[in-house]
Design a protein around this nucleic acid. Structure first.
Length: 839
DNA sequence: AGCACGCCGACT
DNA sequence: GTCGGCGTGCTC
């Protein structure tokens, strides 16, 4: 008997179904469509939209799929039955489905990709989960098992006692069951077993010991207390003291931490154990959320400045009209305090608040500050949390936790009663997801989401994106401004250092101008700190032959390798390829190779020569790897353990230090030369943001920007803190060159390992679209980096007016093109990546 | 994501 | 001459 006929036997349990029930299921995979499964009669009553069902896909893949719709319509193809229903209640809300639908249409991605991005892995349970005995399970004899448990369950436990682990299919085979999920769920509920997936994540909720009076003793019952003292006896002074200390603590707070009792009564675990043994106390454990962990002093609400108060009130006014608000507040103007006030307002009305920040700005600093105000009303969500934590957060949001502070993906959580979304640093490019689909922009999606929930939305930034600013100019958004720094502090004083001039005057010391070195020395002499910004990591971006100009390139990508001194090798920043240094030039054999340019590593290295006593640290992707690397570095800087912090973009985001006297941009030219229509905007934002790190709280800070193009208009605008002029000039340029925010862009990237095939596909695709969309289709063009990770690349750019009609039409054509390319022979191995509103 | 089917190198 | 490398396509 063939394998397929075996499968058929297994599948068609119900015989000839006439009018069965079917479900369309979303699977967490990049599948273009929803898959339809049949529903066995006995599972019908458990079905509802949004619950997960266990289904088989392909030969043996098991997935938790999401029920998207329930229909009577029998599809044309043979269906498989769902195996079980996994939830009693929907895990995904109606609003989430609507959001996914919108995102999949707008960003041209599949529902499955959204599901994969949204659901924490713990809710996706795919593949072969292994079952283990629970950690605290104690082996029991066979007889006892069979008395305590139903036959099947006892059998499984018995096997587990022998074999340590069983896969779900092992169990299925062993018991000849169709579905093992019910059985597994029951065993999990009884806490006899655990799934191995969770074990691998190694997540253990933090537990903390608490102390309570053991029954029958009660704190508020004097006679029972007296009894307790009698039990202790009059000679055990230390124990009497302990009970008294406990009563004192019990009056101050609802519950008593073991740790606190130790401190208050000056006892240790031995003594407490005596009291537990006597039946006076009992110990219980409570899960300690990361966020409760914070034990700082409570901070009173400090009053808003007059300007902040006005901003707050005008936000509320605009919200009453259901308008989105763009809050443009200069660095240091105290936007966060306005946010805090607004958050209070909404949670006071029992609504949820979503506070979005770029991942990297989500530092202990800002989290801590918000915790001071909101305590455990706030939950943090970002990519560093593991599966189990994410499941916990998912559930907490479903149960209505008031505030979620999170990065991009927090948008995909199951909000129940969302009242307000805050998008902080709204200009930040990292709101746009780049690589795996869904390639969504969280800021823009948040605007739709607010609409969906009938919620309000506030976008905040010191350097608003031109998209948002244009929306404000068109009065789609209301604009609220904070143009003064909090506490009347002046904006930092910015100076441009003309590197050409410095060079002519022989005032350069390697990569540092004399100006900069003087300023650094002065700053350190004043006991202040400095931040140096260079948007390039590694030591030097080029390793070049002196005689013929040959450079080392990545074998898989079209880029030069960056020299890293620490590891003494060359690395590709696109694919991670590493190689040792070549001894000689591959092209001409010369042994004279030189390094060109500089990154953060070289700055650190060279600066130490000029400032031998200064404590320097570098902050970039190479130094903050690991879960807390970033926070650790920031804390050390905040503590004054570091004099000069040298970093990439990382140092521009969400940091707030008191003692930074000087900020310097080592080379502004690189930012200005970037081949991208957003280069100017990004340069302005980066420099303004990094300048904003200078001189907070105490006194005016100083900023030095080194550049060869010292006359560049962007530099002048940064220098003058002139956002208005920057924005006007740049918007005019965008308008005349037909770029966002006046036109929408869709980038279609073709990838193929073979260059000829790629060109063929790209040409074909371009023709196809040009014949339907005309001259709105540009290209195909080779991107500036034409090969990445062994794939050659070609880009097609579509520029569209802002009307919804042409957008939808274009997207339909793109989908058609994709479909046709898939079917075309001779083009196997082609990948097409569609990026709507690319960054 | 798995997983099976299908074409090119180092082996008995 | 084969075993197996992963590259490609499909899963309701």
């Amino acid at each position: 008997m063939s394998a397929s006929s075996l499968l058929d036997l297994f599948e068609s349990g119900g015989g000839a179904e006439k009018k069965g029930t079917y479900v369309e299921v979303v699977l967490p995979l990049p599948l273009a469509k929803l898959y339809t499964y049949s529903v066995p009669f006995h599972l019908k009553e458990w079905l509802q939209k949004g619950v997960r069902v266990e289904v088989q896909l392909g030969r043996q893949g098991r997935y938790a799929g999401l029920v998207y719709s329930i229909t009577e319509e029998k599809p044309a193809y043979q269906t498989r039955p769902i195996i079980s229903v996994l939830d009693d209640f929907p895990v995904v809300t109606e609003e989430q489905f609507r959001l996914w639908e919108w995102m999949s249409t707008y960003y041209l991605c599949s529902m499955g990709e959204l599901m994969a991005a949204a659901l924490p892995a713990g809710l996706k349970l795919a593949g072969e989960s292994k079952l283990l005995l629970a950690e605290n399970y104690e082996a029991k004899p066979w007889m006892q098992l069979h008395q305590e448990l139903p036959g099947d369950e006892a059998l499984v436990i018995e096997q587990l006692q022998k074999k340590r682990e069983l896969s779900l299919s092992d169990i299925q085979r062993m018991l000849k069951l169709k579905s093992v999920h019910k059985l597994v769920k029951s065993l999990l509920d009884k806490q006899l077993v655990q799934l191995k997936e969770e074990l691998q994540e190694r997540y253990k909720p933090k537990m903390e010991d608490w102390v309570a009076l053991a029954p029958p003793y009660e704190l508020n019952n004097p006679s029972s207390i007296k009894e307790a003292f009698d039990v202790i006896g009059s000679r055990a002074h230390k124990q009497i003291d302990t009970l008294m200390a406990f009563m004192q603590l019990g009056r101050e707070q609802k519950e008593v931490r073991k740790k606190e009792l130790y401190e208050r009564a000056k006892i240790d675990s031995a003594l407490l154990k005596k009291l537990v043994d006597k039946g006076i106390f009992s110990i219980y454990q409570k899960e300690l959320s990361r966020l409760d962990d914070y034990d700082g002093e409570a901070e009173g609400n400090y009053a808003l400045s007059e300007q902040q108060q006005q901003a707050y009130e005008s936000c509320l006014q605009h919200f009453a009209d259901k308008k989105a608000v763009l809050l443009h507040g200069v660095t240091g103007s105290g936007k966060t305090q306005v946010f805090v006030e607004l958050m209070e307002h909404y949670i006071g009305q029992g609504q949820q608040v979503l506070y979005l920040l770029p991942e990297i700005a989500l530092t202990a600093q800002i989290v801590g500050r918000l915790q001071k105000h909101f305590g455990d009303q706030i939950l943090v969500y970002h990519s560093k949390f593991n599966n189990n934590e994410r499941v916990e957060i998912w559930r907490a949001v479903q149960e209505g936790v008031p505030i979620i502070l999170g990065a991009r993906s927090a948008l995909l959580l199951p909000f129940q009663s969302l009242g307000l979304i805050l998008v902080d640093e709204e200009h930040d490019p990292s709101y746009k997801q780049q690589d795996p689909a869904p390639r969504y922009n969280a800021r823009d999606t948040a605007v739709f989401m607010a609409h969906l929930h009938g919620a309000n939305i506030l976008l905040g930034s010191a350097t608003p994106s031109l998209e948002s600013y244009q929306n404000a100019l068109e009065e789609k958004y209301a604009l609220v401004q904070l143009d003064q720094r909090f506490g009347g502090l002046a904006l930092p004083k910015i100076e441009i250092v003309d590197l050409g001039e410095q060079q002519r005057e022989k005032r350069m010391h390697g990569i540092f101008s004399g100006h900069l070195l003087d300023a650094l020395k002065e700053t350190l002499a004043n006991g202040e700190q400095a931040i140096l910004f260079q948007n390039r990591r590694g030591y030097a971006p080029l390793y070049r032959c002196k005689s013929c100009g040959w450079t080392t390139e990545c074998k898989d990508c079209d880029v030069s390798l960056t020299y890293h001194k620490y590891s003494n090798n060359l690395r590709c920043h696109y694919c991670g390829y590493q190689r040792s240094l070549p001894k000689s030039c591959d092209a001409c054999g010369s042994h004279e190779l030189e390094i060109i340019g500089f990154g953060t590593e070289k700055i650190e290295d060279e600066l130490q020569i000029f400032l031998p006593d200064a404590r320097l640290e570098r902050m970039d992707w190479d130094t903050v790897r690991g879960k807390n690397g970033h926070d650790r570095l920031i804390n050390r800087f905040a503590d004054g353990q570091i004099d000069v912090l040298i970093g990439t973009q990382m140092v521009t985001k969400g940091l707030d230090f008191d003692n930074v006297g000087l900020v310097a941009v080592l080379s502004a030219d690189q930012m200005l030369q970037f081949p991208d229509f957003r280069a100017n905007e990004r340069a302005f934002q980066l420099m303004t943001q990094v300048a904003g790190r200078a001189g907070r709280k105490k006194k005016q800070g100083r900023v030095l920007i080194q550049a060869y193009q010292a006359e560049h208009e962007i530099l002048r605008e940064v220098l003058q803190h002139n956002f208005q002029q920057f924005q006007q000039r740049e918007l005019a340029e965008r308008r005349s060159f037909k770029y966002p925010p006046f036109q929408r862009l869709i980038k279609i990237q073709f990838k193929h390992k073979k260059r000829d095939q790629l060109l063929m596909a790209a040409e074909w695709g371009a023709k196809f679209l040009q014949s339907r969309l005309g001259d709105r289709v540009l290209g195909p063009a080779e991107p500036s980096i034409s090969r990445v990770r062994t794939y050659y690349l070609m880009d097609l750019l579509i520029k569209l007016g802002r009307g919804g009609k042409s957008l939808r039409a274009a997207k339909d054509k793109i989908r058609d093109m994709q479909e046709l390319l898939r079917q075309k022979d001779g083009l196997s191995g082609l990948r097409v990546v569609i990026d709507v509103d690319p960054y």
